[in-house]
């Protein structure tokens, strides 16, 4: 279960609104490689992950991603709070404003709504862990793309923190993959699926 701590994992204090920037950063909230997708992916995969250490890691990283989701939403809100309809329209958020006013809603920068199609929970530990490593790299690249367009320190600073965390998570998933393969038949990792077949793995 979850306990909520009423603070951000890293401080965010944006003094100047900039809805155009918010539009770009939105993809890390509800976009294909964003934090909501990351969290749901790991929290979904953990149930069929028979190895307790890896299930624990998925739980812990999935939980941290919820904290990141909150940070991205905070950035979006602080960049758009107080803007008029005209300002939102000029920044490229006109259509978004029509449906969501000044609210935060999970979609990509391009307007594609968040969907479970953005992630897989495949029920095979090797498959799932490769998916997770790819997810962290995709998120890192998205942050790289954001940082090319966002130069304001107040915004770039928390974004850089989030980007660094993706690299760290990638490292952890790589280690988890090694833990898994160490338990499987080294002559053929794909002999069976430890999450589904009986008597699979040591």
């Amino acid at each position: 279960m979850w306990v909520y701590e009423r603070k951000l994992q890293y401080p965010i204090n944006i003094t100047r609104p900039n809805p155009a920037m918010a539009k770009f950063i939105m993809s890390q909230y509800g976009g294909p490689d964003g934090e909501i997708g990351a969290s749901m992916r790991y929290l979904s995969q953990r149930y069929s992950m028979e190895d307790r250490k890896v299930a624990g890691l998925l739980t812990d990283i999935g939980t941290e991603e919820l904290a990141h989701m909150e940070m991205v939403a905070a950035i979006i809100r602080q960049l758009t709070k107080g803007c008029s309809a005209e300002e939102l329209k000029e920044s490229g958020l006109g259509e978004y404003y029509i449906d969501h006013t000044g609210a935060v809603w999970p979609q990509s920068s391009g307007g594609i709504p968040f969907t479970a199609n953005q992630f897989q929970s495949k029920g095979d530990p090797i498959t799932d862990l490769f998916e997770d490593m790819a997810a962290e790299q995709k998120a890192r690249t998205t942050y790289d793309n954001i940082l090319r367009l966002v130069k304001d320190y107040e915004v770039a600073d928390p974004i850089k923190f989030l980007r660094q965390r993706e690299i760290n998570h990638f490292q952890r998933f790589g280690e988890a993959l090694r833990l898994m393969t160490d338990k499987l038949d080294s002559k053929n990792y794909y002999m069976c699926n430890p999450s589904f077949d009986k008597h699979c793995g040591k």
Partner: peptide
Amino acid sequence: LSFCVVDMQLYLDTHPD
């Protein structure tokens, strides 16, 4: 400090010994 805890938690998940 809570971030340090989380970071170490993830590390210990894959390096329990």
